[in-house]
Design a protein around this nucleic acid. Sequence first.
DNA 1: TCATCACATCGATATTCATCGATTCGACAC
DNA 2: GTGTCGAATCGATGAATATCGATGTGATGA
Lengths: 113, 113
Amino acid sequence: MFTVIESPTIAGCCAPLTDAPLDEAQALELAVVLKALADPIRLRIVSLVATAPDREICACDLPAALDRSQPTVSHHLTQLVRAGILVREQRGKWAWFRIAQPQLDALGQILGS
Amino acid sequence: MFTVIESPTIAGCCAPLTDAPLDEAQALELAVVLKALADPIRLRIVSLVATAPDREICACDLPAALDRSQPTVSHHLTQLVRAGILVREQRGKWAWFRIAQPQLDALGQILGS
DNA sequence: TCATCACATCGATATTCATCGATTCGACAC
DNA sequence: GTGTCGAATCGATGAATATCGATGTGATGA
């Protein structure tokens, strides 16, 4: 029995903003992902992960790095994973996080850079 | 006497997320812009403007197009202008809006697409 | 089995924010 | 001026959310 962990993605959500008007469903889907990024703490988390050695980081280091409590950091990490921006991996007692690069790439495509 | 209308920009705000960790000020500045985009109504406004003939749109057409009241649409337009994503131009009684392309391009650069 | 550590969840609180009706403001035409 | 029309502002309300202390959960090691 295989267990497939699906990571939510906006890859097929919509064309670049300049190509076609978004319908309500597409706008909602995109907004969910952008809202997950649109927070100073979560942006710092993403940039910390993206620039860490091996491009991964242990949750245990974040409360000190961000000057936030452990429950608050956990809350933000959950938001980022549910938006498909981070990927979580359990290693023993520790939780490690990586960037879900396809999701960020898709965002860039849609914003049309 | 000249009147210089400054459009807020994140152009010099920060390097791509994958290049260096954001400090608190950079993260806050970026979050303000992303937060302005991270709403379904505002995303639809941006895509409507970006795909309109001549890439501009009259505010008068938006309440019907978005099924929101005039004050609500005005509120969202204000948010987008203050974030430097849209540019407002008054023509007689009407207000017209265009995309501030450099701001969107800068966003794409920072997200690293 | 038991203590410990890392992290998630719960409960509460304060703040932010989307929304709309009513009102005000500004530009235009007469 | 006066009336009209487009749009911003005000005030209120309900919903979403960032935060943290306390508690629960799951894995580790003795």
